[in-house]
């Protein structure tokens, strides 16, 4: 059953703040094999003008994907997650995520399309810090393969 287009424009309440820790950033940087000292060395980050270590550019997905679970698991929307693949991903940064940030995500459904029987869902996450400053916008497109194609 195609997704209901009346969900386009729906905005979910902001998430409880995600507190960004230095060791979480380090764990993520190590997992992607990225030795840039701005991620692990406070002095190196400060010499670049940052108040603390910063996170790699794709780290915000850890936070926004968690927030998007509201959409993915919304029973009213009825997305069949077992058929979903990640179509594309985009980030627009006002500033990098950094240690000590407490970040809330406001998730919206930007688009729902049906292409060749596949549902294409575009979910936007606006990430703000505790002062209300915009940090990053993450836009994720999910493609739910048509049911009769599942398992091909």
């Amino acid at each position: 059953m195609p997704l209901d287009p009346s969900f386009i424009g729906r905005t979910y309440p902001p998430t409880e703040p995600y507190e960004v820790g230095r060791e979480k950033i380090r764990e993520f940087a190590v997992a992607v094999g990225d030795a840039n000292p701005a991620y692990t060395d406070r002095e190196a980050a400060k010499s670049l003008g940052h108040p603390d270590v910063i996170a790699p550019p794709t780290f915000p997905f850890v936070i926004t994907y968690g927030a998007a679970a509201q959409v993915v698991n919304d029973p009213e929307l009825g997305l069949d997650y077992s058929r979903v693949v990640h179509g594309d991903q985009k980030f627009s940064y006002t500033r990098p995520v950094r240690a000590g940030d407490r970040l809330a995500v406001t998730v919206s459904i930007d688009a729902i399309k049906s292409l060749a029987g596949n549902d294409v869902l575009t979910v936007r996450g606006e990430v703000h810090d505790e002062s209300g400053e915009h940090v990053v916008t993450a836009i994720m497109t999910l493609v739910a393969r048509a049911a009769d194609e599942a398992g091909e």
């Binding site: 991620y39 550019p57 179509g87």
Partner: peptide
């Protein structure tokens, strides 16, 4: 980011899988 040094220089980044 290895080219520019400061990862904060990246203001937009997008891909299609």
């Amino acid at each position: 980011t290895d080219w520019v040094g400061d990862p904060a220089a990246v203001v937009e980044y997008g891909v299609r899988f």
